[in-house]
Design a protein around this nucleic acid. Structure first.
Lengths: 140, 140
DNA sequence: TCTTGCTTTGAAGTGCGCTTCATAGTTTAT
DNA sequence: ATAAACTATGAAGCGCACTTCAAAGCAAGA
């Protein structure tokens, strides 16, 4: 059992974010003690970690909410969850592909700068020249 | 020379977004014709593609603005740009790492669902059981 | 007792990256 | 001549994911 502050520390989220997630039904209602203070269980913490994993994949709160709703409804929603998870995977792979593209381009930019920095005479290059040279390498 | 609408079509951005970028100094002031209408050159289009590449890497507008500012100032800012680009690369690699992590977990989730779907007797699994089984596989 | 520190709540505020609106001027087609 | 289609501007609005605020309750230590 963890207090709000402890749960926040463990997960790296703010107590406000935890309350927000609960309010948005991203996690089931957290148990309270006599003083109405939240008492996060290990299960709650794991649940939060699952949410963090989904957020890390930039899955919107609303989609997580839908997934969690199905999860709570149980076994009969298995196929829907299966399809959702498939979509998530495709989404993540798309994001990775975009980032890889940007990474490749940015790395070639870095290589370009390295080259120019090694040639002191060329450091008076203008931005007009730069992007011409850079684009010649095939931008986007 | 392209009209606002043409530039929008070519880049896939809205004309409003193009004006917004210009307003925020993400691209140098675009030339106008007699009627004050914008006339995007091929260079402008390339510049916009560079911005799109950076946005694809989730680089915030403000950072792009700073980079562009240095770019326009020219050669003497080369080292600063070099450092910025290095930071961008690290940032992108970090994002990819996070997504890979999320992808791996999501794929193991999918595998779990596939397995359960192949065992009709187990489809009455509850969410409590599910995450126990799933977490046992090592969540996050 | 009184302060410090934890907690609660709903409501309002924030920052980002645009989008939409309202108003107005210009060009083209019918 | 008139309507349709394009452009311009500043300002306001929006969706998202939280954060911050304001007011209040409870608990332990000086």
């Amino acid at each position: 059992m963890y207090s709000a502050k402890e749960a926040a520390k463990i997960t790296g989220l703010s107590t406000a974010a935890l309350r927000y997630y609960e309010k948005e039904s991203l996690l089931p209602p957290v148990k309270r003690n006599d003083q109405k203070y939240r008492q996060y269980t290990d299960e709650d913490i794991e649940w939060i970690r699952m949410i963090q994993c989904m957020r890390m994949a930039n899955i919107p709160i609303q989609s997580i909410k839908e997934y969690v709703s199905l999860l709570i409804q149980g076994g009969k929603t298995l196929e829907q969850r299966y399809e959702m998870v498939q979509e998530h995977i495709e989404n993540i792979m798309g994001q990775i592909a975009n980032l890889q593209k940007a990474l490749t381009l940015t790395q070639s930019k870095l290589a370009f700068y390295e080259k120019v920095l090694k040639e002191p005479l060329r450091q008076d290059i203008t931005y007009a020249e730069e992007w011409k040279m850079f684009n010649h390498g095939g931008h986007v």
